[in-house]
């Protein structure tokens, strides 16, 4: 995975709470067996009219946001289905950072696996950012993962929290499976003493 160290980009304001993964990537696009190419389906039902034409009212279709790479949104972003297709679509569209007051657990986790940094900051700070973005066309932010800071125009500056393990994984673009496989001995040792009462492993005392 490509490391994530810092990122500067245009912020698009998606002013809705509880945006679920069905909205981020509708189910008709889950049938593909590939990991790439979902960007064009991102927010499909909101982005396009029934006749497949772009809905000019939807924020992502405004010209200034075509190259946005930071998504600003409200609480509980990414709720619902566990589909990793949602972060795949966001990444493929070009998003590297999502800022919200809260995220749904599975989605939050899925972002890190795909080099997207989800940032939680307070509702008040999110509202401040919405104000800035609405005031300044093409408002940009600079996000620095190492120092855990966000900086922008109009005096916006804040620190954010991120779990140190996830931070390191992103900063180094590490492959989690390779890392775990280094612990293989521990896993084997654990398996030696752990008895799952599972049909394929009939408990020892059965015979």
């Amino acid at each position: 995975m490509k490391p994530f160290i810092a990122h500067e980009g245009i912020v698009v304001p998606l002013d809705r709470p509880n945006v679920d993964t069905d909205a981020i990537l509708p189910k008709q696009f889950l049938k593909r067996v590939e990991k790439k190419g979902y960007g064009k389906y991102l927010f499909f039902d909101w982005r396009y009219h029934d006749n497949q034409e772009e809905n000019p009212e939807f924020i992502l279709n405004k010209h200034v946001y075509k190259k946005a790479s930071i998504l600003l949104t409200r609480k509980n972003f990414g709720s619902g289905s566990s589909r990793e297709h949602a972060p795949w679509a966001l990444k493929d569209f070009g998003f590297r950072v999502i800022i919200a007051p809260s995220f749904a657990d599975i989605f939050y986790n899925n972002c890190f696996k795909n080099g997207i940094l989800p940032i939680v900051i307070s509702e008040t700070l999110v509202s401040d950012l919405f104000e800035n973005v609405n005031r300044v066309e093409g408002y940009t932010l600079r996000v620095d993962l190492d120092s855990q800071t966000i900086e922008g125009k109009h005096g916006f500056h804040t620190r954010f929290e991120v779990d140190s393990f996830r931070k390191e994984m992103l900063l180094n673009g590490r492959d989690e499976i390779s890392m775990t496989l280094q612990e293989e001995e521990l896993i084997e040792k654990f398996e030696g003493k752990h008895n799952v009462y599972f049909q394929f492993d009939v408990p020892e005392n059965k015979n």
Binding site: G80, S81, S82, I106, K113, T180, E191
Partner: peptide, 30 residues
């Protein structure tokens, strides 16, 4: 699948994961 929580009815710790974690579990069982 997010509705893996269903299996919790039995007193199992059951939760939904994304595809990256599916791959991780397939490869490492952890």
């Amino acid at each position: 699948d997010s509705h893996t929580s269903t299996h919790g009815a039995f007193g199992a710790l059951a939760f939904g994961i994304g595809t990256s974690e599916v791959e991780h579990v397939l490869a490492t069982q952890t």
